[in-house]
């Protein structure tokens, strides 16, 4: 499992770079590195479906993020927050860690999942009531409500993007004239 540790350390390093670097384009590239390392980590963790999806989703995410940052006058993130905000954030992080200790103790040890609900699915699959790809069967057969909700959320997000980027809205145009 050494490769998993290497990947996680790489992800943490890339995340720190993404958070702390000034240039926004470099930050976006660093977050892309985190996402692609996550894709490889999914592969190591025996989740090939997720690896494929994460890979292509990361590419689209990068294209959109670069679109938002690069084509205009190279904005750099200037100046950190005030000292008080940073201290408060650190305090929150420490508090979170302290509160997370209980749940951590209750977790099953790494490598031995609970496997309670999934057992039903695997048994049904062994009886032949499943496609070969168990993940696909779960999202479309056993958990179809989730998938319906997911498709609806994506649909709503696209409608939201279209509504936000609409240029000649009736009210929007009036409001813009008012302010200018």
């Amino acid at each position: 499992m050494i490769e998993l540790y290497i990947l996680l350390l790489f992800m943490i390093a890339a995340a720190v770079i993404a958070v702390e670097i000034r240039d926004l384009l470099s930050a976006v590239v660093a977050v892309g590195a985190v996402g692609l390392a996550l894709s490889v980590a999914f592969l190591v963790l025996k989740a090939p479906d997720l690896a494929i999806t994460q890979l292509v989703v990361e590419i689209i995410c990068l294209i959109i993020l670069i679109r938002a940052t690069v084509t205009r006058d190279r904005v750099a993130a200037r100046g950190g927050a005030a000292l008080a905000v940073g201290a408060a954030a650190c305090a929150f992080v420490v508090l979170f860690l302290a509160l997370a200790r209980g749940p951590f103790a209750a977790l099953p040890p790494f490598g031995a999942p609970l496997f309670r609900t999934a057992e039903l699915y695997v048994e049904a699959g062994a009886r032949g009531e499943s496609e070969p790809n168990l993940v696909s069967t779960i999202i479309l057969n056993w958990r179809a409500y989730d998938t319906l909700g997911e498709a609806t959320v994506l649909f709503t997000a696209v409608i939201g993007v279209l509504a936000l980027l609409r240029r000649h809205g009736r009210k929007g145009a009036a409001a813009e004239e008012e302010t200018e």
């Binding site: 963790l45 997720l50 999806t53 699915y121 779960i138 989730d146 997000a157």
Partner: peptide, 21 residues
Amino acid sequence: VDPLPQALVLTAIVIGLGSTA
């Protein structure tokens, strides 16, 4: 490996892309 978290995370990844956009 447990397929249930994989199925749920699969939908979560795509939803995450939508919300990020």
